[in-house]
Amino acid sequence: MGNKKQKAPARSLVLQRRETMVSYLFLLPALFFFVGFVITPMAMGVITSFTDASFTNPEGTFVGLKNYTRLFQDKIFLKSAVNTVIIVVVSVPAVTAFSLWVGSAIYKMRSGIRSFYRCVFYLPVVTGSVAVTVVWKWMFDKYDGLLNYIVKALGGQPLPWTSSEQMALWCIILILFTTSIGQPIVLYVAALGNVDASLEEAAKVDGANDFQVFWKIKWPSIMPTTLYVAVITTINSFQCFALIQLLTSGGPNYSTSTVMYLLYDIAFKTTKEFGYADAMGVVLAIVIALFSALQFKVMNGGTTE
């Protein structure tokens, strides 16, 4: 660090200019795709959300905040927002706690067994949401589904699963859960492996039990990982889409519709009002950013050094 600072003033203006030019040449290809296909559509989305653009009228005219005020009177949107919040509030703690448990159960195992488990729990992610969803659709099937077979074999009444307003959202949450824990487990295994072993030994010598070792030593040192896991799980749960589109199409009676699904439904299926759907996207993006910031605050507050 100090070395660099000393050298900085010695660099000639020509060299500095040359380095800047070379750097931008190297950055150019990445910036082209980033600005062209991430930043531009983001800006377009925000602008369109203030218009009444639609499939038949792609340009649209400026309508101010009308789309945004309409959101809060739209019963279907409010219902979808509630469903989205339920998914996030259930799945984020469940995924975090479960993957932490699996991570701590496997990280001390022999490396072969450890990578076996890591693979198994990562498999649904690799398999892809489409293949995973279609096989669950079959298992949830009222007549030929495995789940009702098991329920009947255990002496119960067949359940309606995804065709019931009460159960459908929980079916979605279950599948989402199986496709969400792979990455957190990989992260926790790595983080737990990096916990300073000497601290753990010292605590044990001092007579701490396993629970105390976990709570006082491991938990604080894996805090950054927990935070990261909570944030990515939040972002993913808010964006849960493929499962819903393939399994229930938001039904029955909007009981599994989420903001992300409704946005797609409005933009591409039903009324094709791009402006209105973009307003939903903007609200969703803001909410996700707020949630992530909040988690950052809450969890960092817990470990003030």
């Binding site: 750097s23 972002i235 969703l284």
Partner: peptide, 28 residues
């Protein structure tokens, strides 16, 4: 490398990463 605008560009990359990519589906 050290160059003018590096912090700004890196900051933009990081901010964009935290945003949900599916919300840009329609404008895309």
């Amino acid at each position: 490398k050290r160059f003018w605008g590096k912090g700004l560009i890196f900051g933009l990359f990081v901010c964009a990463m935290a945003l949900p990519k599916q919300v840009i589906l329609i404008p895309l």
